[in-house]
């Protein structure tokens, strides 16, 4: 499975990328919403998942999610916001725009894997540490 990580912070792309490549994903990256659209348009095989920051230059995460949901051929992509925006109304807006899940920064690797589990994107359920 492939994932597109859309975040203007290279450090954050690296952190998310490491968690998801350990979980078996092939990682694509983009630094903002517009770049992410360019990446998607260039793909023969679409990613299964996109992890999307909210605040980015050029095109923000909400606009990107709205654009992906506008295009029928991209409906197969599962969208998860990964952002510091933590107010309820932000979460509601993102879900209404078409995001499937919402992970608030900072987060742990376990929290991200549990979100993927909720989305049915992990080959194995998250293990019970006890």
């Amino acid at each position: 499975m492939r994932v597109l990580i859309v975040d203007d912070s290279r450090a954050m792309r690296r952190i998310i990328g490491r968690i998801l490549s350990d979980a078996g994903f092939e990682v694509l990256e983009a630094g903002d919403g517009q770049e992410a659209i360019d990446v998607l348009e260039a793909q023969v095989e679409l990613p299964t998942l996109a992890c999307v920051d909210w605040n980015m230059p050029v095109m923000d995460g909400l606009a990107f999610v709205t654009e992906v949901r506008r295009r029928p051929e991209w409906r197969v992509i599962t969208l998860m916001m990964v952002t510091t925006e933590s107010e309820s109304d932000r979460i509601v807006r993102a879900l209404a725009a078409g995001a499937h899940e919402y992970l608030i920064k900072p987060f742990t690797a376990d929290a991200m894997l549990e979100k993927l589990d909720l989305l049915g994107l992990l080959p194995m359920p998250v293990g019970d540490p006890s």
Binding site: S86, A94, E101, I104, F107, T108, D110, A111, E114
Partner: peptide, 10 residues
């Protein structure tokens, strides 16, 4: 915030 990130659907 860390606690509500754990396994809780948005």
């Amino acid at each position: 915030q860390l606690e509500v990130n754990r396994g809780l659907p948005a």
